[in-house]
């Protein structure tokens, strides 16, 4: 019974894949990250104490694997911050620009935006995945939204 835990992960594969893809922006690298994540999961599952958090746990693996991948591949060094000039030059509302801006967010901001708004997760769950406290995640989300120029109040993230 317990060896079926990975079916829960496989059932949610699209979410993990999309997250990996958002970091590396190409299929082959995203598949590689998934493969390595799966490998780590298979190896480490035995040491996982709370078996009911397998999804959260696998998210963490995918995020860490992606981060390692980016660090290793110099060509993929992520942009530290959005180029404010280029946004100011296009002050029109434009979904392409917004998508682009999400794409170019630094790693930790992109992660919280995707998990919170794209995957519709609760802040407490995101905190669990990242191993941070809820307030840190909120602050990070608020900063990320500001970078994206999304109108929002701090209480409303």
């Amino acid at each position: 019974m317990d060896n079926q835990w990975y079916l829960a992960i496989i059932a949610e594969k699209e979410r993990f894949y999309r997250l990996a893809y958002s970091y590396v922006k190409n299929e082959q690298d995203a598949l590689d990250i998934m493969q390595e994540s799966m490998y780590k999961a298979l190896k480490q599952y035995g040491r996982l104490r709370e078996k009911d958090v397998v999804i959260t746990w696998f998210y963490r693996i995918v995020i860490n694997t992606s981060l390692n991948f980016l660090k290793k591949n110099a060509k993929n060094i992520y942009i530290e911050d959005i180029d404010q000039e280029s946004i100011a030059a296009h002050p029109r509302k434009n979904y392409f620009e917004l998508r682009q801006a999400v794409n170019e967010l630094p790693f930790q901001y992109k992660t919280v935006i995707i998990l919170r708004y794209f995957e519709d997760m609760k802040i407490s769950d995101i905190a669990g995945i990242l191993g941070e406290n809820v307030n840190t995640v909120k602050t990070r989300l608020y900063t990320a939204l500001k970078k994206l120029r999304v109108e929002i109040s701090e209480e409303d993230v």
């Binding site: 029109r92 509302k93 979904y95 917004l98 708004y117 794209f118 994206l148 120029r149 999304v150 109108e151």
Partner: peptide, 12 residues
């Protein structure tokens, strides 16, 4: 600011 949470939802 240019966008609202609704805009974010479109992209989501």
């Amino acid at each position: 600011n240019l966008y609202s949470k609704k805009d974010l939802e479109v992209i989501a």
